[in-house]
Design a protein around this nucleic acid. Structure first.
Length: 815
DNA sequence: AGCACGCCGACT
DNA sequence: GTCGGCGTGCTC
């Protein structure tokens, strides 16, 4: 007897045991997709994680219905990776499965209704809905549940179906079908048998009465004789509007013209020239040699290269080497929108052997990448965090670019894994080497590399020996006191911007807060506009003239008067990027000032358009949020200003200073990339702040030493491991009680100093769910697994309380 | 997760 | 009296 452990695309723990029927025993393998029944007639696509012959106890397993794959879709390495993810991040395999697979690859059965054979229906006793349904079934035989909503009110559906089943008129069935459809293109050609002169004359004679058809026939014929080897696209025939389907159809019906279809890739590939990469500079060569050496010792690498040091260059060399060894490369980026430079360079070299994968592809496009990876047609895959789950056969190199970027961390959907850390483990399973690259490595990675867990390689020189930009701290308090300010800008900064523009150069202004004003406050009664779903104030967006909640997305029109006291004096408080943009536009009325933030980039191709505008130097000043710190590599940006830099530090988060450092350094890196004369202006009330001082001095080792000292002092990572448990529920008292309970259980299992909280989350309510959190600070190293096991036990105790099962619980490991 | 079962309030 | 609200339990 053979049994299989099957993972289902549901948020359920572990796998389920199914019996493998005799006929499937020779074909089933781990990593294949199978169809299995689950709960009644419902059918799911599961994945075989294990095949064994241990008879289960306590229940009778059901049979595997069928095997969907000829070869395993998940390689062994991925199965190991999933198991590791599930154990490390305390999530279920089902969650990983759902996240990893495009939905077309995990078919679910759909429920259909049909009439029972040979029934006679007594319409007298049926109500309107029942009658509708029976009549519909008599016409269409099968109806799925979603179609039903079109003619029966939603709330009556269940009732109607149940009643008709009771009457034995209808029955329920499940159907499962392939969702993926290859994209097909229609072609036409003249029927070959007619291609001799005699038949052609006869046909043309026949078509004399239909001149349009005749012309179309002649068009196809001439195309075909001109280029006998190329196909004639059906859509091309109709392009100039002279002919239509009504002219072609008779020709096809009379068998003069044949129509046929060809499958076409949805994925556009580069078809242009293939270029070689340029030679490395001396310092790049040295860095590359160090990487080679580390790889010899099977060690991973943290490549810490200052902005414009040409990390990409080194990546390209390593990619080339890896491909030449017949192995494939996975190149991870935090967001696909910033792939322009790297993909342009890779495309020119690898053409069709390059693939992309990210969440913005359509489902069918994803399936096509899956197939190409599985067929080993892709040598280099550029993708975001979800690209870790493609069915790679042999990976030799993994590159995680901008490794410090928080986009590698998932906070929205489970599994809550960090793609940067996971990539290191992933590399281990494939026996591939990993390069983490950044100009501002995360404190954690820096620490690991310094502790020799990875090879640390520092590229301290910009490409072409170009100077790093110069930092100037502007004491805004002093400027204010001496009346040398205009709005949010010191006169000194405005002067510098003016000079930059006069030289026909460009400037960037960073202000990391969306909207126009943070709060709209009533002057007479102090009323502020709260979101009705969340415990946050609504942000005023002037461009859209509306109030937006940045947490649940709710929008409302801007109130004309205070809803409480009807005063019309509403103050705009807290400066947003829209306001800075407006201010700068007024200060430089004859210059082109553009804004770049999520709100202004929402339209399709808005980013691309602005990108080109900046590239063509039509834009003089770009005002934006953190978005402008990424990917804007242009030659003529010479000045970067951060008018309200203090706002970067006043964030309640132990990583606030690290983030501020990363953001400032990254945006500073946009300046003076070619000239080496970039200038950075940081306006602050606090020029003495150690982070600003350290950035200004540009002593990298000192900065990280500072961060590490702070982390050590307050027991934060990398010196401890954090796990954050967040509980959510519609009712505040309930989630409060539940988190108190979980807190006490955790304290029972763990030392007192490890458990912090529970406490109300910083935002106590989002989308009408009240949130509480418990923070666990666990020791690193050997004991960590032991402690984590205790956490699991606590969660198990908690789950056993049935009253708390409706509480949504999220566990963030390495929070 | 989703879906059925089962126990209490608001209506014909 | 019924309908339907959602809290609870289970799925190989």
């Amino acid at each position: 007897m053979r049994y299989a452990q099957i993972v289902l695309p549901l948020n359920l723990k572990g796998s389920f045991t199914y019996k493998v029927p005799e006929e499937l025993v020779p074909v089933i393998q781990t990593g294949m997709r199978v169809l299995v029944p689950f709960r009644g007639k419902k059918i799911y696509t599961g994945i075989v994680f294990e095949i064994h012959d241990i008879e289960p106890e306590g229940f009778i397993p059901r049979d595997v219905i069928s095997v969907l794959d000829e070869f395993p879709i998940l390689p062994k390495e991925q199965i190991d990776f999933w198991n590791w993810l599930s154990a490390y991040y305390l999530c279920t395999l089902g969650e990983i499965y759902r996240f990893a697979f495009p939905s077309s690859l995990k078919l679910e059965s759909e429920t259909y209704l049909k009439l029972k054979p040979n029934v006679t229906v007594d319409f007298e006793n049926l109500d309107v809905n029942e009658m509708y349904l029976i009549q519909a079934l008599e016409v269409r035989q099968l109806i799925n549940l979603t179609d039903l909503e079109a003619f029966i009110p939603k709330k009556d559906i269940i009732k109607t179906i149940n009643s008709l089943i009771d009457l034995q008129y209808i029955e329920i069935d499940e159907k499962i079908g392939e969702k993926y459809k290859a994209k097909e293109v229609a072609y036409v050609k003249i029927n070959e048998r007619l291609l001799d002169n005699e038949s052609l004359t006869a046909i043309l004679a026949k078509l004399n009465k239909a001149p349009k058809q005749k012309d179309l026939f002649l068009l196809i014929l001439s195309n075909q004789t001109e280029n006998p080897d190329t196909y004639i696209k059906k859509s091309d025939l109709f392009e100039d509007g002279i002919f239509g389907h009504s002219h072609l159809k008779p020709l096809v019906d009379k068998n003069f013209v044949e129509e046929y279809y060809q499958q076409k890739d949805r994925l556009e590939s580069y078809e242009g020239e293939i270029e070689e990469i340029e030679e490395l500079s001396e310092s790049q060569k040295k860095a590359k040699e160090e990487i080679d050496q580390a790889f010899e010792e099977k060690r991973n690498v943290l490549l810490h290269g200052v902005t414009s040091s040409g990390k990409t260059h080194i990546y390209l060399e390593k990619i080339e080497e890896c491909v030449n060894q017949g192995k494939n490369v996975l190149f991870l980026l935090p967001e696909i929108s910033l792939t322009k430079q790297i993909t342009q360079r890779l495309e020119k070299k690898y053409g069709r052997k390059l693939g992309f994968y990210h969440q913005k592809l359509t489902d069918f496009e994803k399936v096509e990448v899956w197939r190409r990876i599985k067929n080993n047609d892709i040598q280099i895959l550029v993708g975001t965090r979800n690209a870790l789950f493609l069915p790679y056969q042999n990976v030799g190199l993994v590159i995680v670019d901008e490794e410090h970027d928080s986009a590698y961390k998932a906070r929205e959907v489970s599994p809550y894994f960090n793609a940067k850390d996971s990539a290191l483990v992933f590399g281990g399973f494939y026996d591939a080497r990993v390069i983490l690259g950044s100009a501002t490595p995360s404190v954690e990675s820096y620490y690991l590399a310094r502790k020799e867990k990875m090879k640390y390689i520092f590229l301290n020189e910009r490409f072409g020996n170009v100077q790093l930009p110069e930092f100037e701290l502007i004491n805004f308090k002093e400027a204010q006191d001496s009346k040398k300010v205009s709005g949010n800008f010191s006169l000194h900064l405005l002067d510098e911007i003016k000079k930059t523009l006069e030289d026909r150069n460009q400037a960037i202004i960073l202000h990391n807060r969306r909207g126009y004003a943070n709060v709209l406050e009533c002057e007479s009664c102090g009323y502020v506009n709260y979101c009705s779903n969340c415990d946050v104030v609504m942000t005023y967006h002037k461009a859209a003239n509306e109030m937006k909640c940045h947490y649940c997305g709710q929008r409302a029109s801007r109130p004309k008067a205070c809803p409480k006291c009807h005063s019309e004096n509403l103050n705009e408080r807290g400066v947003g990027v829209e306001q800075i943009h407006e201010e700068v536009s007024k200060l430089f009325p004859d210059k082109e000032v553009d804004r770049m933030d999520v709100d202004s980039m929402r339209k399709k191709f808005a980013y691309e358009k602005l990108y080109e505008k900046i590239e063509d130097r039509e834009t003089d000043i770009v005002v934006g949020t953190q978005m402008i710190s990424k990917g804007l590599d242009f030659d003529h940006i010479e000045l970067v200003a951060i008018p309200k830099a203090d706002s970067l530090l006043y964030v309640q988060d132990f990583r606030a200073e690290e983030r501020a450092f990363q953001l400032i350094t990254q945006v500073a890196g946009r300046a003076g990339r070619v000239s080496g004369k970039g200038k950075i202006y940081i306006q602050t009330f606090n020029p003495e702040h150690s982070v600003f001082q350290l950035i200004k001095m540009n002593k990298v080792t000192k900065i990280y030493y500072h961060f590490l000292e702070e982390r050590k002092k307050f027991h934060y990572p990398p010196f401890t491991k954090l796990i954050m448990i967040e509980l959510k529920h519609r009712r505040e008292d309930k989630v409060n009680r539940a988190s108190q309970f979980l807190g006490s259980v955790l304290r029972k299992y763990l030392p007192e100093e490890c458990v912090l909280g529970p406490e109300r989350s910083q935002i106590a309510r989002i989308n009408n769910l009240y949130q509480f959190q418990i923070l666990l600070k666990l020791p690193r190293g050997k004991n960590y697994e032991k402690y984590k096991h205790q956490v699991l036990l606590s969660l198990k105790d908690f789950n056993e309380i049935t009253a708390y099962q409706s509480i949504k619980k999220d566990v963030f490991v390495d929070f």
